[in-house]
Amino acid sequence: MNIARRGILALAGALGIGAMIASAPGVAQDWEPKKPVEFIIMAGTGGGADQIARLLQGLIEKKDLSPRPFIPINKPGGSGAEALRYLQDKAGDDHVVLVTLNSFYTTPIIQQDLGVDISNFTPIGRMALDTFLLWVNTDREDITDLDSYVDAVKAAGMEWKVGGTGSGQEDSILTAMMEKEFGYEVTYIPFPGGGTVAKNLVGNHIDSTVNNPAEQNEFMRAGNTKPLVQFTPERMQSYPDVPTAQELGHDIVYFMQRSINGPPDMSPEARDWYINLFKTLFESEEWQTFCVEDGLTCDEWVAGDDLAAFHAEQGKRHQELIESVGAAAITGE
């Protein structure tokens, strides 16, 4: 019995050390987290959103910005539907935030029966605008530019496999936009995250993808995959030699917001605390360096009501985009 008690004490001690360190006092404020904060990622591990969440989690700890840790949790199911629904069900909870992709807009539009209305969520801050490029495996020596790509896709027809992170996810919209612009049709295969897509492209299980830079950079440096086109208005600093679609006469420009949002009915005190926290992170040297390296645009901090307005405008734009390419083209039905 004695030994058992000692064991329990040892355990309590071990946990105590963790708890003490975790609860080291931060800046005194009206509200601060009283328990660990769930940091929900609406995509799988290894993808852009995942990397961002894990970097932010680490920076929060490193700079001791929160009295309680942030715990990243991936909820990739159904193009983010799982995460959105989870956040909706957490209404009024001050200890959960979501890092978003554009499926934040598109998934509720495409999946009406999900019963999620993002305008009820609590906007906190926009960390970055992410960009897209078109990637193929370097083994495809026949494909050197956009024209040869389009030729190859047309020759393959429905055999051409484009990997992405889910029907209705931003890459599927971009894929649908390309299908419409170039007049071909491809087979779209969803994977649980951008990292898995990249792996399948390197392994030649899919033929192309429109991944974010963060998901492909290391494979590009290793000579496994190559970018053909970027879908930005101007060439990015990190890809000076890759033409934009506009330069080549195709008007396809597409961005993805990376923002932090709370559940519906988050208390105003908590919201202000999070806005403050993420603003500090946004302005940190580490974050700005990450943005440059990974082809993210991080010029402007948009928070709170401004972000709500941005969401409303983007929601409308995505509604139009989905109508113009047709929801069926995106869901593959």
Binding site: G58, P72, N74, G195, E218
Partner: peptide
């Protein structure tokens, strides 16, 4: 590959990214 095989390795991955190590 930068793809963690489990939630725990995902946290290790987070640690690596902070220290500037790109998997």
């Amino acid at each position: 590959l930068g793809i963690p095989g489990s939630p725990t390795t995902a946290i290790l991955l987070g640690g690596m990214i902070i220290w500037g190590l790109r998997p």
